[in-house]
């Protein structure tokens, strides 16, 4: 997911004000909210495709059932993010990030891969992670949080691993340094 400037702009203001010696007034791009998705910041238009999910979906309904359907997937994603934004190893990644949008597109992505009749509307993995600068250990930490979240949802361990096997190759696009 792309870095959004909303929070960065809010945090940057007082610092810049203190350091302001030049007369040039600070120009910040206006924050425009999305009309399509309430609560999200509007993003530049881009092509949408399920191929951007970065993995082919499972066939059949076994995996979807193992995750307790789209609702279960939603709980897994929320728990994973709740853990991650409190995780000192990777919490910084999510600062100034549009978390409303992140939760939505991750739920779409997971549901699409797990075989739910859901389309993924987010960006592809390479584009969405290009500017974040993640290390391999960051991805490892996120996977651990995902495992904890799946455990809490009661997802069978073998089903967890089948799902993780779909996500693992994304490392090439996710880890950029």
């Amino acid at each position: 997911m792309r870095l959004f400037l909303l929070a960065a702009a809010v945090f940057a203001l007082p610092v810049t004000a203190l350091a302001q010696e030049a007369d040039a007034p600070l120009e910040l791009p206006p924050v425009v909210m999305s009309t399509e998705h309430p609560g999200e910041v509007a993003v530049e238009p881009y092509d949408r495709s399920n191929a951007h999910a970065g993995a082919t979906p499972f066939e059949g309904t076994a995996m979807l059932e193992a995750f307790h359907g789209v609702e279960g997937i939603g709980r897994v994603v929320d728990a994973m993010i709740d853990l991650s934004i409190e995780d000192p190893r990777i919490a910084g990644t999510f600062v100034s990030h549009d978390m409303v949008r992140l939760r939505r597109v991750l739920k779409e992505q997971f549901a699409y891969i797990l075989g739910a009749p859901v389309d993924y509307s987010g960006r592809d993995m390479a584009t969405s992670h290009r500017d974040i600068g993640l290390q391999a250990a960051d991805m490892g930490a996120l996977v651990e949080n995902l495992q904890i979240a799946m455990d809490r949802e009661g997802v069978d361990f073998r089903a967890q691993n089948r799902f993780l096997a779909k996500l693992a190759p994304m490392k090439d696009d996710v880890v950029t340094r």
Partner: peptide, 9 residues
């Protein structure tokens, strides 16, 4: 620089 422990599962 940019080094850390404990990245593997």
């Amino acid at each position: 620089p940019e080094s850390r422990a404990g990245g593997k599962l």
